[in-house]
Write a protein that binds this DNA or RNA. Structure first.
Lengths: 176, 176
DNA sequence: CTAGGTACTGACTCATCACTTACTTACAGA
DNA sequence: TCTGTAAGTAAGTGATGAGTCAGTACCTAG
């Protein structure tokens, strides 16, 4: 297997593990095992645990952006926005991607991580703004709903019968 | 100092440390040091690291609810909601409380933590709903804005000159 | 003054972790 | 067939962390 393919396999494994136990709570041994390689080889390919985490975060944001781009392909304005919203709801069902994102936000006290998260989220916002042509208030509303859904999904309440959670979710679907 | 006062002091220290390095990334030694006691005594008062974390999360949600209650005192409907929104903006300037909250969401893969977070957030939502009398769509909007601000604040962008971030924040203030 | 409880700690144990070193194997090109 | 390089690992190291144990210091009720 080429080094590039190995890197991809490791990043896939890393996201899964970082998603559930976070940066500090995940051992490089666990990730290597899940990726089917030895732990020293992981260090050969990524240098440090932090570089691996940063690469994982970047990949996560890049995949989300690509999902938005695919969803909006050939569409414009409101129509593009709706397609992106639906596509995002789909992403939420992948708990690994969701929790990895939440771990990234929670790790923002670290300056290096914060810089990567800022860049990833910023790319998402500016691209969406450009394609949809939304004014600030509507743009905020779109991303705000996304974040609320993230948190509700983190608590695993998307398909629960908790009454207050259902009302929050229904309230999200109701408008725009 | 009474055990009860010590518990409070430890919880204060714990929130600060958990906020920046999360559950797994924070050592009980560090918390004990910050609280000015020995590490064994921390275990005497809280049993396990996890119990300490859970107590810290519960306290965090309780304080937020109390802030909402104080802000809304003697007010009703829209007026109460505005007061709560303003009070929440104030809370965001306390980075310790903010990041502790984000760490709690990110730790939701653990069932015990998830249960506590659900309860805390649920209390916040149901109380707000009852006091403001909002319909689901507006209730969602209120909490969605709160979550977006949380994330923007996590990235330390509340007072930055990053253009896209300013537009998001202004967009939040613009409506309701 | 003393018995018992409450606050509090020094000095461990055993496990785990990030990272390294020194090595092996597989294979493509000269 | 020999050589250089890329893919890969077994076996460490030094540090740190959660949790325990066996105590000490102090205060208060009788």
């Amino acid at each position: 297997m080429s080094a590039e393919e190995r890197r991809e396999a490791i990043l896939e494994a890393a996201r899964g593990e970082f998603a559930s136990t976070g940066y500090h709570g995940t051992s490089t041994e666990t990730i290597a095992e899940r990726a089917g390689i030895s732990q020293p080889y992981l260090f050969r390919l990524f240098g440090t645990k932090k570089e691996l985490f940063l690469a994982s975060v970047r990949r996560c944001f890049r995949e989300t952006l690509e999902t938005f781009q695919r969803a909006a392909e050939g569409k414009r304005g409101e129509e593009a926005l709706h397609a992106m919203g639906d596509a995002y709801l789909g992403l939420l069902t992948d708990r690994s991607r969701l929790m990895a994102q939440m771990q990234a936000y929670a790790s923002c006290d670290d300056p290096e991580i914060r810089a990567v998260v800022r860049e990833g989220y910023g790319d998402l916002v500016t691209w969406t703004e450009r394609v949809s042509g939304l004014a600030p208030a509507e743009l905020s509303h779109f991303f705000a709903k996304g974040m609320l859904l993230n948190v509700v999904a983190s608590m695993d309440l998307l398909n629960s019968d908790e009454a207050w959670a259902r009302r929050l979710i229904d309230g999200c679907r109701a408008d725009t």
